[in-house]
Nucleic acid binder design. Sequence first.
DNA 1: ACTGCATGTACCTGTAGCGCT
DNA 2: CAGCGCTACAGGTACATGCAG
Lengths: 319, 319
Amino acid sequence: MISRGETTATILDVARRAGVSRTTVSRVLNEPDRVSPGTLQRVRAAVADLKYAPNTVARGLRSGRTGLVALLVGDISQPFHGALAQAVAAAAEARGLGVILYDLGHSRTRLQDVLNKLPGQGVDGIIIATADDISAPKIRAALAHCLESHIAVVTGMELFDDDAVAAVNFDPAAGSRLAVEALAEAGKHAPALLVGDAASPLARHLARGAPTALLVEAGYSFDGAGRAARELPREVDSVIAATLPMAIGAWNALAGEGRDLPLILCEDTPLAAHVRPSFTTVAIAPETLGAEMVRLVSLPAQADPPPVLNPELVRRETF
Amino acid sequence: MISRGETTATILDVARRAGVSRTTVSRVLNEPDRVSPGTLQRVRAAVADLKYAPNTVARGLRSGRTGLVALLVGDISQPFHGALAQAVAAAAEARGLGVILYDLGHSRTRLQDVLNKLPGQGVDGIIIATADDISAPKIRAALAHCLESHIAVVTGMELFDDDAVAAVNFDPAAGSRLAVEALAEAGKHAPALLVGDAASPLARHLARGAPTALLVEAGYSFDGAGRAARELPREVDSVIAATLPMAIGAWNALAGEGRDLPLILCEDTPLAAHVRPSFTTVAIAPETLGAEMVRLVSLPAQADPPPVLNPELVRRETF
DNA sequence: ACTGCATGTACCTGTAGCGCT
DNA sequence: CAGCGCTACAGGTACATGCAG
């Protein structure tokens, strides 16, 4: 049924068919203003006839831009990262960019390996969408090499102070602060803050916004959060959780013990609204984050500072 | 991208430093057996000295292989697709391949657009991990074009009978059959089968394995499944659901009406085990599926037929 | 003539810079 | 200057050839 045989058309085929040179075809594609209407039309007809699509590999070799962006996520199987990847893919598509996916599994050595490999891969930009600590010297060195190779680098939050690396202007502390305030208004003054890795920048940011909260490290898993929740001191009267799986794990563990503490989740994902119970969140929509990351990565290095993104409190069943 | 003469060495720099020709350096990298031990060592030393990494764009242009595989998913924000993407990324990494992510949003026209673009993108393979109908003539034509361009194509299940497109040897009907049998043993003989899109191959496969079940189309969303569940006839005594969000939506809707029907979910994802209630599944682990897809896509076209993957019943709280 | 190893050169497909009309 | 073409690349790999033993 599906047959093979013909080969794909090159720019030369189009040029011959339209009776022009390769250069002219190239111009029709890249600078149409500089081509006369007549040739424009003939070339475009030839392009359509032959179903010509420029070979991005060849283009990349000559121009130095591949139209590819690397997306580095901590763990793509987590609901939030899935939603974020979707947003990034959509925003990238809108700008004619492709997205290469790298799942880090929260591993620092893996991050380092990937960063070392990327300059040779010919990507135009790197989006680091992990909340893990990436300040190790070897990682900094790898990042520096990427920047030397003129690859734009963007992080999802302020991971370290370095002007060369753009960061989305979103402070997780604003979210945890909002959560603490909302809980306080409801008379809850002793929240626990459940984070995956206490040493991670995300955890430190969240803790900064919730200085009164009891910081608890629970790993990123359901079970870890469940165990941590069961060991929460009696005086803890509410919970702020970093990720949805952790929130679910903690909630189920507490419910199993008959403890019904209000809980606020610090990330937004469609699932949070639809699981039972649905989770109250303070967060930024993944769509917003993804779009902003892609915008930053495709921007010239020293552009105006990114706009501040403020998290929003969405009340649902857990608080 | 990579600027010349500064930080990034080319194969010519290595060749000069080692006192050999470019060809020899190339061979050291690609066919080390064909190089004498002495030169091998000298060239490798030069490579290390200059921290040389081959430019994959240039390599791709000449060799026609880029080491990139396109992963087309129906909706990456769905938990199952996230887990699958993770598995695919891991398996690809193990074979030295990169993964370009395309989110289709269950749109046929989007699939068509992507397939039309891929031959020019220089990908070596395409993994179609959607369960949607892809048999439209225009899509077939686009697929044919990909195959003509010597791009390997793999689907996650039998989407149509075509030898040129490899498919994972997994029959969803085996899963739904298993589900029906398990329910029957428990005295449940009138299950409803909740699918996202009744016209999709997945739905048809599942229906084939569960001919006695009432087929209900619910869209892929929580809410759609909830509405569909509320309208289930009284005689329905159990539910088989295609996706986790649908299972959650249906379960919550039924619970809201005090109806407590046993439910079996036909896809596996970590979340299924950890939400409350945890969902009984008949499925194949995403890791297995992902690994198999990558294996098939990196195989020569007419290799031996893929091994049969059999779904497994995992009992949890919903049945 | 056959082997083992290295070299030379023609590509792969576009785009940049400059030149011509 | 507008409109288009020529040619030299970009950085590798395929293939044919060269040259010892």
